[in-house]
């Protein structure tokens, strides 16, 4: 029962949504199903948040190494949750959107989440540069092609690329680096992206079929 019922639920719901796509009268069902999915999936956020709290409380209780930082996590989590759920400092009160300009929730996002997020991702610029220096040596044909394509795209998006090849006449404008970058993006890059997308689509379709037909069961876990 622990395995059969979820498999039945999955097969039934999966089949209904596949049929709904091909049946003109079932658009409402598809729309309702989408909201149904959103409501269930929303609880995954709550599950994630609850798990975060549990893990960090355990870490603090056991005085694991770095437990002091868990207090920071819990403090940030609690503060943001309290302000966000009760819409504290929201100029329009409970009727306003949580991200209303000037609300405390939005202020914390603007001065805490956004800088942290942007800086975290910008940090990757240094690591990507460092890793590419080590990895992108033109050791073979494939690596050389990758390196050249990346270099042209990078140059083509900067002023330097424009200045370097501005002397090239218009009838040969394909040889100008910014245009070459556009050509790479719209032709070979498009071809590669398309081949990958077709491959992914076939993979998604086959995986969806395996799930609906009950062949793929790894989502049930190993215990019975």
């Amino acid at each position: 029962m622990k395995r059969q019922i979820p498999m039945m639920i999955l097969s039934t719901i999966g089949t209904i949504f596949v049929l709904a796509y091909f049946s003109p009268g079932l658009e409402e069902l598809e729309k309702g199903g989408s909201i149904f999915f959103d409501v269930v999936a929303c609880f995954a956020f709550f599950l994630g948040g609850s798990n975060l709290v549990r893990v960090h409380i355990q870490k603090i209780a056991r005085h694991n190494p770095g437990w002091g930082y868990s207090i920071v996590t819990l403090f940030g989590f609690g503060l943001m949750l309290f302000i966000g759920l009760f819409k504290l400092g929201n100029p329009l009160g409970i009727a306003g959107a949580p991200t209303e300009p000037g609300s405390w929730f939005q202020i914390i996002f603007q001065y805490c989440v956004a800088p942290l997020s942007a800086t975290m991702y910008s940090l990757l610029a240094f690591f990507v540069a460092s890793a590419s220096y080590r990895a992108f040596r033109a050791k073979n044909t494939e690596a050389t092609i990758l390196l050249v394509a990346a270099f042209i795209i990078l140059l083509g998006r900067t002023q330097l690329g424009l200045v370097m090849t501005s002397w090239v006449p218009d009838w040969l404008s394909i040889a100008q680096i910014p245009n070459l970058a556009v050509f790479i993006m719209t032709s070979p890059n498009l071809a590669g992206q398309r081949a990958i997308m077709i491959g992914i689509a076939l993979g998604v379709v086959s995986m969806s079929l395996r799930l609906i037909l009950g062949i793929e069961r790894s989502y049930l876990g190993s215990d019975s």
Partner: peptide, 25 residues
């Protein structure tokens, strides 16, 4: 908790099967 998980996966599989076949294939 596998029941709602099955709902989430079933919905995703049902939606994606037809949509990926149409738009990405």
């Amino acid at each position: 908790a596998r029941w709602p998980l099955a709902v989430i996966i079933g919905t995703t599989a049902g939606f994606n099967l037809s949509r990926y076949l149409h738009s990405d294939f």
